[in-house]
Design a protein around this nucleic acid. Structure first.
Length: 266
DNA sequence: CGCATTTGACCTGCGC
DNA sequence: GCGCAGGTCAAATGCG
């Protein structure tokens, strides 16, 4: 799948999922109620998929069994290193002087430093929720764009996330080069009970108004193409091995086809 | 008063 | 060994 969301590979499950991530082939008359029901159903399926992915990541043995040759070799040859990942986020203009990236964890700042290659100070944070949590976070504004925050996370949390939050996940190229457009965007939200919800295909102006969680921190995370590809790969890998999902998908496709047959009576 | 943040000092790793 | 840069510590400070 390329950066435009188009897929040039032979028909696979990922190709079958394409309608979930892109516009429908042709607009069908659909009431708001129908749309809400359809999106809710997609939410439910994707939430289950994400839960499975996260559960899989938290169990190294499961990863080792899914790719035995690579996983075992790496584990045997290299000492455990803290996992490092980088996230870019666009800060609100009103927060132009702030140097903090809000997310679903609680952080305590323990240092700040001006680095050589960047005029903006780098802030150092530790996870404040669990004293034993080894995760650290570095946040620094981009030297090129002072509204772009670059956060580097080291390590993995050994506890559940605590605060509720909602992220608007966008494609890097989209938000950098087509800012202001109404392209479909995905929303991943995590409520206080730890349940994840993904809403696919709703542009910003189509999203439902904020509910009782309006006070929650909202950050815009720009997903790099590498992260996006890894996420898609993992989703495809997981869903391909989920016979129940494949069965339900086939059933849903069949229903959709039947809907389009002229004269079909519901 | 307690907690989070600030900030200068100190520590550590790396290149020369 | 020395200097530099990044990372961390801890006392001072601010705020609710």
């Amino acid at each position: 799948m390329d950066s435009n969301g188009e897929c040039s590979s032979p028909p696979t499950l990922s190709a079958a999922l394409l309608p979930l991530f892109g516009p429908p082939p042709e607009p069908l008359p659909e009431s708001l109620e129908d749309k809400l029901r359809r999106v809710s159903e997609e939410n439910r399926r994707l939430a289950a998929a994400l839960d499975a992915i996260l559960a899989d990541r938290s169990t190294p043995r499961a990863l080792a069994t899914s790719s035995p040759s690579r996983g075992n070799a790496v584990a045997a040859a290299e000492p455990p290193r803290p996992k490092v990942r980088t996230v870019c986020a666009r800060a609100e203009p009103s927060d132009a002087d702030a140097n903090h990236l809000r997310d679903c964890y609680q952080w305590r700042k323990y240092g700040q430093k001006v680095t050589r290659d960047n005029p903006y100070p780098r802030s150092y944070f530790r996870c404040a929720y669990a004293p034993s949590c080894p995760v650290k976070k570095k946040v620094q504004r981009s030297a090129d764009d002072n509204l772009m925050l670059v956060a580097t996370y080291e390590g993995e949390h050994n506890h559940e996330q605590r605060a509720q939050s909602e992220y608007v996940v966008t494609d890097a190229s989209t938000s950098l080069h087509q800012a202001g457009s109404s392209l479909p965007r995905s929303i991943i939200s995590i409520d206080s009970s730890g349940r994840k919800k993904i809403t696919i295909g709703l542009a910003a102006d189509q999203r439902p108004p904020a509910d009782s969680n309006a006070g929650a921190a909202v950050g815009e995370i720009i997903v790099t193409p590498e992260f996006r590809k890894a996420l898609v790969d993992e989703l495809v890998n997981l869903l391909t091995n989920d016979s129940e999902f494949v069965e339900k998908l086939a059933s849903a496709v069949a229903d959709r086809v039947m809907e389009r047959i002229p004269g079909h009576i519901f």
